[in-house]
Amino acid sequence: MYAVLALIVRRLLLSAVILVLVSGTVFVGTEILPGDALDATIPADELMYYSEEDLARMRAELGLDKSAAERFVNVLRGLVTFDFGVTLMTREKVIDSIIHPLLNSLIMASVAIVLTPLVSVVLGVWAALKPGGRIDGTVSGATLFAYSMPDFVVGNVFVIVFAIWLGLAPAVLMITESAPWYQILAVSVLPVIALTVSGVAYQFRLLRAGMVEALGSEFIERARLSGVPEWRLVITHALPAALVPMLNGTAQFVASIISGVVVIEAVFKFPGIGIELIRSISQREVPTVQAITFLAAFAVIASNLLADISILALDPRVRRARNDR
């Protein structure tokens, strides 16, 4: 037990270090290379409109006249305390401008993150019960096809089929950015399904492979010979073993869902953080880009941490290995 706790603490510390490194990367990416935030805001062909005095004044306003180390400390302090500063254009607090879109995206992504493994498990178990059978072939073929489809294609096809042809969902999400969560949830159905397609396809394949392997293993065979009912073999013996690789896949899915959110939100005009990211990049709003990038990295680190802890909880072999050390 002590070893498991130590592992969790170690992962937490490692996550903190990674966050600092991410902050550094964000800082370097947006403030140092190839120029500073002002250079990123003003393309080279526009510099003719600025005098040296203009540039010096603007650098001072943005704090860019300070040393890189000093700026890094400031950026780091701001990022880890979730104080992202103010926007360049309107001078409003970055957090105020992104909080509603952030929460909306969290709602949509959370549903997708919960739904994806559930659907994957159902499909994976169903297909693995009779490998090579008609159901396995159909589901495997469909998921391979879905996995090869880019998110923007899936999103647009969904709009055409489910919204325009069948009228089952809205083609345009008519909702305000600050709408209550249940309204956001209500309009998220189609975007969530579009968002889960590739994740389900990927995780299904991991789970199916794990299930086929587990169901063919010796310990399952022994259990079967000792008279354990088939449903129990599948649910309580094979599935936990097959879930471990899928959970690792889920952590990866969380990372990929962030890029998926940007695409899906753009297709459906969902009032989320992906739209804000596109807007801030096109406006060269460096503080907003920094904030969103940092929060995305934070989400990936947190999800990986959760996945590790879940594996510890689910897989006795991992716990034993830690305790044996």
Binding site: V159, I164, P170, A171, V172, K269
Partner: peptide, 15 residues
């Protein structure tokens, strides 16, 4: 309703 949203919204009967 930017981009395709205008025609999509009209076709779907939302607008």
């Amino acid at each position: 309703a930017m981009g395709q949203s205008a025609i999509n919204g009209f076709q779907s009967g939302q607008f």
